[in-house]
C-alpha cells in the first residue's frame, strides 16, 4: 500500500502565524462522542465488533450507560460553563434518541459524522459504498437537526484510502481523522478545500481511562497541562486544543466532578481562548489562513513525489 500523501511535511517552527477571532491565541473545542453501539451488529470480516460473541451485554451496557446517564450529566455541565459541544455523532442516534439530539441542537451544539453506528466499520467497503455512508450521514443529520454536516471522524477510526478524498468530494470542511499536528492544515485532495482538524488521542478520555489507567483527577491535570502549553505556544503559532470525550467514561459518578474542573478552567481563560465549535474553527481557517498555509507548505517539498 502506498503512502496516501494526504499532506506534505511542514515543520511547526517558522510557520505563518494563525490568529483566531478577537486576536485569541488558542481555539478550544470540546468533542463529546455521542455514540450508539449495536447489540447484534453484523460481523465485519476485518474486525469483530465485540470481544465476546453477540450479544456482548457487558460491553454493550458499558456504552449504553452514556445514553441513559452520562450524556445528561455532561450536557448539564457544558451548559453550566457555556461551552458548546461539537458532537462526534453516530448518526443513528437521531433515530434512537431523538430527544437528546434535539436538546443539544437547541443548545447550539454542532454535529459531525462519526458514522452510522460505532459498530459499523468502513473496512472492506468499496469507494461507492463508503460514499453512500457519508451521504447517508449528511442526509440523516440534515433531516433531524437542519444542520449541514461539515466534519468527520470515521466510525471507530476505521478508514479506507478513499476516506479523505471522499470528504472533499462531498463538501466536508474538516476531518478529525489525522493526528499529525496541533494546528489545522490543508489536506492534499481534489474537491473543495478540506482542513485537518486537531482532535486528539493522547488526551482522549478513552486513552486516559482505559489505556493509561488515569484517575479522574490525573486526567484533569493532564488536560490542564495540555491547555497551558498550547495556550502559551498559541501566542506565537496559533493553536487548537480539543478535548475528545465519551459520556460513558467522563459521565460516571466518580469522574464528572473532576471533569467539570477543566470546563471551569477553560471558562476562566475565555479572554485568551476562542471557545468554538470545530466547524467554526475550520471556517475561520479556510477564510484567513488556508491559502497562506498552502503556499508555505509548498516550500518544503517532501511528500508529493516521495
Amino acid at each position: 500500500m502506498k503512502d496516501p500523501k494526504l499532506y506534505g511535511h511542514w515543520p511547526y517552527r517558522g510557520r505563518p502565524k494563525v490568529t483566531w477571532p478577537g486576536g485569541k491565541k488558542m481555539a478550544f473545542w470540546v468533542a463529546p462522542n455521542i455514540e450508539f453501539y449495536e447489540l447484534n451488529p453484523p460481523k465485519n470480516p476485518h474486525r469483530s465488533p465485540w470481544p465476546r460473541p453477540n450479544p456482548d451485554i457487558v460491553n454493550y451496557a458499558y456504552r449504553d450507560h452514556g445514553n441513559r446517564v452520562g450524556n445528561w450529566r455532561l450536557i448539564e455541565a457544558m451548559e453550566k460553563y457555556n461551552i458548546p459541544g461539537t458532537v462526534s455523532l453516530s448518526v443513528a442516534m437521531c433515530d434512537h434518541f431523538p430527544d437528546m439530539i434535539e436538546q443539544v441542537n437547541a443548545l447550539g451544539w454542532e454535529f459531525f459524522s462519526h458514522g452510522a453506528y460505532n459498530t459499523r466499520y468502513i473496512y472492506g467497503m468499496d469507494k461507492e459504498q463508503e460514499r453512500e455512508t457519508l451521504q447517508h450521514a449528511i442526509d440523516t443529520v440534515k433531516a433531524a437537526t437542519g444542520q449541514q454536516v461539515r466534519g468527520y471522524l470515521a466510525p471507530a477510526l476505521t478508514h479506507s484510502v478513499h476516506t479523505i478524498e471522499l470528504l472533499a468530494e462531498l463538501g466536508f470542511t474538516y476531518s478529525c481523522d489525522l493526528f499529525q499536528d496541533d494546528q489545522p492544515q490543508p489536506l492534499n485532495v481534489p474537491g473543495s478545500p478540506l482542513v485537518s482538524m486537531p482532535y486528539s488521542l493522547e488526551v482522549n478520555d478513552h486513552y486516559a481511562y482505559n489505556v493509561f489507567g488515569q484517575s479522574p483527577q490525573q486526567y484533569t491535570d493532564v488536560l490542564k497541562r495540555q491547555f497551558d502549553t498550547l495556550l502559551e505556544e498559541g501566542g506565537t503559532s496559533g493553536t487548537v486544543m480539543c478535548i475528545p470525550i465519551h459520556a460513558y467514561l467522563v459521565g460516571r459518578s466518580h469522574r464528572m466532578g473532576p471533569f467539570e474542573e477543566i470546563l471551569r478552567y477553560a471558562e476562566q481563560h475565555k479572554d485568551d481562548i476562542w471557545i468554538a465549535r470545530a466547524g467554526d474553527i475550520a471556517e475561520h481557517y479556510l477564510e484567513h489562513h488556508y491559502d497562506e498555509a498552502k503556499a508555505h507548505i509548498a516550500n518544503f517539498g517532501g511528500s508529493d513525489d516521495a
Partner: peptide
C-alpha cells in the same frame, strides 16, 4: 473490494 450490502442496512434502527 466490496462489503456485503447487509452492512449498509440497519434493521433495528428505530426510536429507543
Amino acid at each position: 473490494m466490496t462489503l456485503d450490502p447487509e452492512f449498509l442496512k440497519y434493521p433495528m434502527r428505530r426510536k429507543g
